[in-house]
Design a protein around this nucleic acid. Structure first.
Lengths: 331, 331
DNA sequence: TTGAAAGCGCTAACAC
DNA sequence: GTGTTAGCGCTTTCAA
């Protein structure tokens, strides 16, 4: 099949290309009879409008760029699912860009995004990337940030208040028993999240007038947290540990078991991200449920709003979390 | 910043737009002096070439479409990572389309792909979608299929021979001990993979002259395989079970444990997909290592080959797997 | 209700 | 080595 354009359809139907364009775009001002003629021609020739040409003529691509750190995590996948489901509804396509640290130069990614003339961009990244945001802003891209609370003329955000989540959990544990000792496991891949978690714990400590740090740092000589825990879990001065990712909590769980610690009797464990594996390990892992799918879906919704209206009222949208106690915590 | 085009740059630099175009595209025939003039203008104005206009003029978008069933699985994520890393090297962008069953009409996805005039498409899906492939072929898209062995004028594929993997494992177990009873756990979400696994087991049985079926079907009234195993694992006439996904094997593992079966003494367990969770559960789960990242990376490489050469010699590329015994199997 | 024509931003002959 | 110009396929005034 040869490339068939709007001209071919016009000729086949015996009308002008303007009329074909009207039919394609469902404009009402076309007489029924000619509309049928055109549609017949379209079917016969197998014509599909060229989105690139449309994009050029209309100055919009109905495509949005999605930037994520990597595509490997179950969590990111959920975000993408939510986002795409909503994008489908509004007929937007997704250009996926990953920013694998070390492999990809973020400047290049931003450059690609600008050149591609997408209608908007959604960024999910633990790091804030102020320079890159500034660069995108120069070119007037509407932007939605997932995970970081912030906003600007052209920027909205959708996030979960992780600090609050950790703060509340810590506080409630401390209320139960003031001697509880609660610490956050460092997540090297997610600095900002780690920082929020730590702040949450510290705020709770402060409020209770307890002088504690609440931070479990994994020395860089340990490539896997499991190895670190195996060596040091007995010395860690916390009897309640909060991790970001399920895999980290599971590592601690396994190491604890290996060195004879009992969970949750000797050590309690919680993670932020809720994956199906939380219910698959034994003991089942207590966790928060950060609504990953919703973060994606809401972000896309916010973006379409920014794309269609001049002013968006709510530029910072906080999504709520749920705490789901399972077997790795008492009570 | 207002929209700046190649004309603006030309005017600013005092040259024609053709010259600017030459500079952008790095053509050698521009005098050093004028090149510098143009580059200065580009920097000053913050000009970025419009990929849409380029696409229209060149009849190529340097974008490829990637179709995946969902973005939620760790496995799919790995494929995407491999694919994107290679795509970056060749300067291709990725349009991500998911085909969530029930939510998305695949016809619409194919339609979007055709309209977007991507240079090629890569499809990872357990189902074959012959109609959709035919439709894409009509429009001459080069296509790479991940996971299914097949080829055509316009179609290449990259896959792992799962049937062989399961066949060889089964056969070796049967050689160790003819009384072994090996069965494949149905994966409802991946019919084709399930079929290949079953065929592998059956071929091994046949070869050994054993009259067995080797198929563990999970009745549709059970939404989760865990529930099924909890009810029925004691009656299942297999002492060695092969699952596709880690989560299924883990479900069986947990259920077995719950009803007092010991692993690997009473029941051995293996899964095809190698995720980090295989090493995190106790006992550690033996598994194959289907090279997900490589499936993606190689696919993208094959596609660029198809895009640049007229004929590709190797249209069906088989990737090899590894078997990694851990604690869920004896020996 | 329909058609003619300009323009979206760029590339690639072809001319100078 | 550089400029002129005709497309690429579509949308959208403006006329008819």
């Amino acid at each position: 099949m040869k490339r068939v354009t709007i001209y071919d359809v016009a000729k086949e139907a015996g009308v002008s290309l303007a009329t074909v364009s009207r039919v394609i775009n469902g404009l009402e001002i076309v007489r029924e009879e000619t509309r049928v003629k055109v549609e017949t021609a379209i079917d016969k020739l197998g014509y599909k409008p060229n989105a690139i040409a449309q994009g050029l003529a209309l100055q919009k691509t109905t495509t949005i760029a999605l930037l994520v750190p990597e595509a490997s995590f179950a969590y990111t996948g959920q975000i993408i699912n939510g986002l795409i489901d909503v994008a489908k509804i509004y007929k937007y396509n997704i250009m996926l860009h990953t920013m694998t640290e070390g492999i990809v130069d973020i400047k290049d990614v931003i450059d690609d995004v600008i050149k591609s003339r997408v209608d908007g961009v959604i960024i999910y990244n633990d790091k804030l990337m102020e320079d890159e945001l500034a660069e995108l802003s120069k070119y007037h891209f509407p932007i939605v940030i997932i995970g970081n609370k912030m906003s600007d003329t052209q920027i909205s955000s959708v996030y979960v208040d992780i600090e609050k989540a950790v703060y509340e959990l810590t506080l409630s544990k401390l209320h139960e028993d003031k001697t509880r000792s609660i610490g956050v496991i460092q997540d090297r891949k997610n600095d900002f999240t780690t920082k929020q978690m730590i702040n949450g714990v510290r705020r709770a400590y402060e409020e209770m007038g307890i002088d504690k740090d609440g931070y479990i740092e994994i020395p860089s000589e340990y490539r896997r947290s499991y190895d670190y825990f195996l060596d040091h879990i007995k010395e860690i001065p916390y009897d309640f540990m909060i991790a970001n990712r399920d895999s980290q909590a599971i590592s601690a769980m396994n190491a604890a078991h290996e060195v004879g610690l009992e969970i949750p009797k000797d050590l309690e464990l919680v993670c932020l991200i809720d994956s199906k594996y939380n219910s698959m390990v034994r003991p089942r892992l207590s966790s928060f449920a950060i609504p990953a799918y919703d973060l994606g879906a809401v972000s896309m919704r916010v973006l379409t709003k920014m794309l269609n209206e001049d002013e968006v009222d709510d530029k910072e949208i906080e999504l709520s979390y749920l705490y789901t106690p399972r077997q790795s915590t008492r009570n």
